[in-house]
Design a protein around this nucleic acid. Structure first.
Lengths: 233, 233
DNA sequence: TGTACATCAGTGAACGCGCGTTCACTGATGTAC
DNA sequence: TGTACATCAGTGAACGCGCGTTCACTGATGTAC
């Protein structure tokens, strides 16, 4: 009975993921607002109402795609990190950055889904938050190890640390790496925005006519970021 | 006769800009793909086909909005720059960054239109390029003045300057500020991506639960950027 | 200054299209005795 | 092992909606003599 039950359930899970696969391809053609349940159903050779057996609405399908995208990007970052010896801090940092960029370039429309302009009228539910933290957590992991082994240098910070900023950063530290000084965490935040700023510019066409192709600029900027957060050269 | 001609032409220009105004409001409600000529016409109390007297297609209306947005943001940046004494280099830098952020927060949907995910199937024409350069040019103007008055310090760059990167940056220099060293221009590029990375994260909701509100973090990061490009404290 | 003609703005109907979602249904798969 | 019933996947028709764009038209505004 458990065998038969899983038979049906397996079919169900398989079709659900086929639906997502087709939807992902559709994303590439027409973007998030262009994602159409009818088109997905057509592609799968089924009638549009059948999709509702798997996803209660278009927004739920979108949410599933968003979660998958965050998870795929996070997994890519973690795998790249794990492939570098853990004491090679700067190389780990660079590997994570590179993996995020490569994933984004390989899956530009999924990237746009999670880091582009929000879909109007769509409110991302709570379930997306945890997967979204995987990349920043991977970056913080490098800093944690660097700090623990006393290899984190402290660049001279500019003025501008208000108490409110210190408190905000302190709250992030509390739920992630309480041992890291707030200065380090602030610099990590800056590097984090820098990383995605570059990738968005590259994918959304802002570099056309300047640093395009972007490979060399990206590598160089990544080194600057490693300097900023205090990783040894 | 020139008076009468301008009478008609003025009416025409006025309605064209009323159409754009309504379209801009629509953008806010439903995003770029949601922008509907019929809805705009309805709002203006005219029939949908009348819009075609002013814009040959939906895409042309979008293009006009994009150009206006770049220009408005650029004008805000330039005005903020001009309001600071030209020798206060760091304050000019910060004023420009602040102006860009403020404009983006005030006009989030126009910001999303130009810096968010590209509208699928829409190809931005050449006319958008010049207005798009106004903000980076304003930032470069500060660096130009700093360099000319010999007040630009040179931070120690990390490794990673390939010849190709130097060439790419050199080409940008050639059409903007040939006197600036490529290292400075590269750091300016990094700061540029950093600036828009932060603004996008703030507007697109990536900071929710971390540095939100973002004011203090933004000010602090702006100082870091000024350090990076070598402006005196 | 007045008339004949050309230009242009806006109308209204129509074409052809695609969408999300609901609902009563058929028939296959799984469950309990 | 066999039968009666319940669950579930997928169908097909329908509702109600909005969209971009075209086209022949009316009537007002501007132009040339």
């Amino acid at each position: 009975m458990s065998a038969t039950r899983t038979a049906r359930e397996r079919a169900r899970a398989e079709l659900a993921s086929e639906i997502k696969d087709v939807a992902r391809i559709q994303l590439g053609v027409s973007g998030a607002d262009g994602l159409s349940l009818r088109a997905v159903a057509r592609e799968l050779g089924m009638v549009s109402s059948a999709i509702y057996r798997y996803f209660p609405s278009r927004d739920d399908l979108l949410t599933a795609l968003i979660i998958d995208a965050y998870d795929a990007m996070g997994a890519a970052a973690e795998a790249a990190d794990a492939a570098v010896p853990s004491t090679e801090l700067r190389n780990r940092w660079r590997a994570i950055c590179r993996a995020v960029r490569t994933w984004a370039r390989t899956n530009p429309h999924e990237y746009a889904l999670i880091y582009g302009s929000p879909v109007p009228g769509y409110q991302a539910p709570q379930d997306t938050i945890t997967p979204a933290t995987r990349v920043p957590f991977a970056l913080l992991g490098v800093l944690r190890d660097a700090f623990a082994s006393n290899r984190l240098t402290a660049p001279r910070d500019p003025p501008g640390f208000t108490q409110r900023l210190i408190d905000q950063v302190g709250e992030i530290a509390a739920v992630t790496n309480p041992e890291l000084p707030y200065q380090t965490l602030t610099r990590a935040l800056i590097a984090w925005t820098q990383l995605f700023g570059m990738i968005s510019f590259e994918l959304f066409g802002q570099f056309v006519g300047t640093v395009d192709p972007t490979d060399d600029f990206f590598e160089h900027a990544t080194q600057h970021m490693a300097d900023l957060v205090g990783l040894p050269r």
